[in-house]
Write a protein that binds this DNA or RNA. Structure first.
Length: 272
DNA sequence: AAATCGTTCAACCGCATCCGG
DNA sequence: ACCGGATGCGGTTGAACGATT
């Protein structure tokens, strides 16, 4: 393994006893039992005292990313994905900071999501995931689609904008379809949280209609609580309005629509 | 059925920062 | 102020697994 190659002499002997790689059930149980009795922290001494043949770092990582109570496993919800996009726009690759705003999710999981899902799209398009054009693509397609998923999964969605979704399903329109789902943001506070609800902002997209809009989601599980139709605005294409985006073979029944569908943006190239 | 390829994600590494002595 | 150990963070790796050939 990588570490042992670098080790020599007695240090090597000592560390060769250390286990690496995937954790076994017994190791997990041992770690859980030890932390239950003694608490977490002081990872190096914990690693020695517990009898685990692991480094303190390894114990810490296993606990924080997997074993700790309330750590969520499984796919990120559309609400969580939206939050990641928004927070990444503000903070960049500050995975830990982003994770602090997604209860139960770890920095590692969010980082993996970004690399495997978001950057995958960028790679497919052969553009830099940090480039303006990719950010615009996110704005034009990903966010509206996530919003639709949020809306679709909402208990209150049936009476809000079903017609919009049906229109999309029958005849995809390259212009984003988030019509009627946003409430005007009147807050200038950069904190996305309010006392009784979360209003998620989209500073991600300068000049976009999303910039000064937010939507309200449930505090506990990110479920959409309400939409305000009295002050809705249609999405408008902004500075890339001349682009004729087209989705490639969209399967509207797929649960993984947003995750796995690539965008066909060949026509972007003539503007690059 | 076997080989190859692509994707995912748990785990590791190096470096930065924090903190107590 | 300095030092050394502990902890946190972000980038990277590689085993496992599913999809494709």
């Amino acid at each position: 393994m990588r570490a042992s190659k670098k080790m020599t002499g007695s240090c090597n002997e000592q560390l060769e006893q250390l286990r690496r790689g995937p954790w076994t059930l017994d190791e997990d149980n041992l770690l859980i039992h030890y932390i239950t009795c003694h608490g977490e922290g002081r990872w190096n001494s914990l690693a020695k005292s517990s009898g685990l043949k692991r480094t303190g770092k390894s114990c810490r990582l296993r606990w924080l990313n997997y074993l700790k109570p309330y750590v969520k496993h499984g796919n990120l919800t559309p609400q969580e994905q939206l939050l990641i996009l928004e927070l990444h726009s503000k903070w960049g690759n500050r995975w830990s900071k982003i994770a602090q705003n997604l209860p139960g999710r770890t920095d590692n999981e969010i980082k993996n999501y970004w690399r495997t899902k978001v950057q995958k799209q960028a790679r497919h398009l052969k553009i830099d995931s940090n480039s303006k054009i990719f950010v615009e693509a996110l704005k034009q397609f990903w966010v509206p689609r996530l919003l639709e998923k949020v809306e679709h999964s909402s208990p209150s969605s049936s009476s809000t904008s079903t017609s919009t979704m049906e229109a999309n399903q029958k005849n995809f329109n390259p212009q984003p379809q988030g019509k009627g789902t946003l409430t005007e943001n009147t807050s200038s506070n950069s904190n996305i949280y309010s006392s009784n609800s979360k209003r998620i902002m989209f500073p991600y997209f300068p000049g976009s209609p999303l910039q000064n809009n937010g939507y309200i989601v449930d505090n506990n599980n990110f479920g959409v609580m309400s939409f305000n139709h009295s002050n809705t605005q249609e999405f408008r294409s902004s500075d890339i309005s001349t682009f004729e985006f087209q989705m490639a073979e969209v399967d509207w029944t797929s649960n993984d629509l947003v995750d796995d569908t690539f965008w066909n943006m060949d026509e972007l190239w003539q503007f690059k």
